[in-house]
Structure formats: C-alpha cells, structure tokens
Amino acid sequence: MGEVFVITSGKGGVGKTTTSANIGTGLASIGKTVVMVDTDIGLRNLDVVMGLENRIVYDLVDVTQGNCRLKQALIKDKRFEGLCLLPAAQTKDKSAVMPEQMKDLCLNLKNEFDYVIIDCPAGIEGGFKNATAGADKAIVVTTPEIAAVRDADRIIGLLEAAELRNPTLIINRLRPDMVKKGDMMDIDDIIDILAIKLLGVIPEDEAIVISTNRGEPVALDMNSSAGQAYRNIAKRLTGEDIPLISWEAEEGILGKLKKIFGFKE
C-alpha cells in the first residue's frame, strides 16, 4: 500500500506545481513507482511542467465520471518506468469532482503505486477540499515572503481541521544573498513562526525557469542546486536521513554546493 501526499500552499505562485513535478520525478529516479495527480481543474499546469501536455487523452473528471477506466487516463512518463501523470480537466466545471470521489481515487491509486503526489490548486475552497480528501500526509510550500508565510499558516490550520496532522514544510525560492543582507526572512524565522517540521529548502535558481521551458523537471538536472534540493527531499520522503545543506554559507550557494558535491569550479 502506497502513501498519498498532497502538495499545498494557500497562496498561488509559490511553486506547488514545480514541487509536485520534482518530488514525483525525484522519487521515480530512485526507483519508486509514482503517480502525480493534478487537481487544479480549469487551470491545469502539471502536464506542461512535466512536458507531457501533448499526450493527454482523458483526465481526472473523465475518471471520476466513469467516461474511461483509470488506467486509460494515466499518462506514462517515458523518462521513468514507474512515473505516471493523471492530468486535471481543463474545460470542465470545477464542481465536477467531489471529495468522496477523490478518496476512492486515492485508494485505488495507492494500491498500484508507492507514492501518490497530489498537486493542490491555490485557495481554500472546493479544490483544496478535493485535493486533501484522500491524502495521508500534507506538504506545505511557502516562499520567504510575508504573504506566502501568512497563507501557509492558514493552510496549516485548515489541514489540522481536516485531520491531516503534522504537515511538513518546503521553503521555496530562498535567496541566501538576500538573507545574508538581512533583507529576506531566513529558515529559522519561518520555522519559528509556522512551528512545523522542515522537509527541505529550495534555493532560487534560474535552472527552474530553463527546465520548465523545456518540460524537463529540474530534479533531472545534476548541475542545478534546486535540482539537488528536490532530489534530497525525495530521499527524505522515503525515510532516508539527508542533512540540510547550509544555504547561508559564506561562499555562496554555488561554491558551497560545488564543494559538497565535488563539482569542478
């Protein structure tokens, strides 16, 4: 029996979809079977981030309404044997899926896969309720900005109300140079305020934009610091004890990373 993780944030634009794609890809790259489910009905994007947008035939709503079998709607990623995507519907009504249907779907999926990664839409309305309905664990994504942390706090409260206790936190788009100057909240500031366990920190990285342009998740880019951070998160989810990289290093991220991972200058 697999495990269902929902990736959520409250605020839009903090990197839920990028995180879903890269956790999914990261887990698949270490041999796990993974299905990613896009629940952002009407505003699907996980397909383009994964580079699978041209292969969609059926979607989440087709499955819940019985227009096709579950297996028919799953898009197999050609990069990894065990990696699949269930895309969201783009043209159907948001209310087309109900939380009960999501629960059933998640049960079916975790019978087949080691990990089910659910990409939650922004907001706290129906889409959030659908995305969390069948989840076993929640991962909250935030950025070191006041608005994103505020919304993360609200989401943590709503997750608890939905019986999803002890969510873990990913801090995305951290800029060590700004942290050093005192112009960006650091990891400790955010953990201090949100009081939940840290799962990982993703540095701001141009490689994310470039890899998204290409439809290749950054977790596959061995030279990118964000890619490394995502691969570390994937390993932590499997129970491996991977220490955090110190992002506030004097020499800056790149130098530090190159040292740690033995890349040539």
């Binding site: 900005e145 006041i146 942390v149 942290v179 100057k181 005192g182 960006m184 909240m185 500031d189 305020i193």
Partner: peptide, 11 residues
C-alpha cells in the same frame, strides 16, 4: 533590517 520588519508584521 527589512527582514525583521517583515517578521514583526507577520507576527
């Protein structure tokens, strides 16, 4: 620092 202003406002 702008960070401590942010943290205080957030609190």
């Amino acid at each position: 620092s702008s960070k401590s202003i942010a943290k205080e406002r957030l609190r």
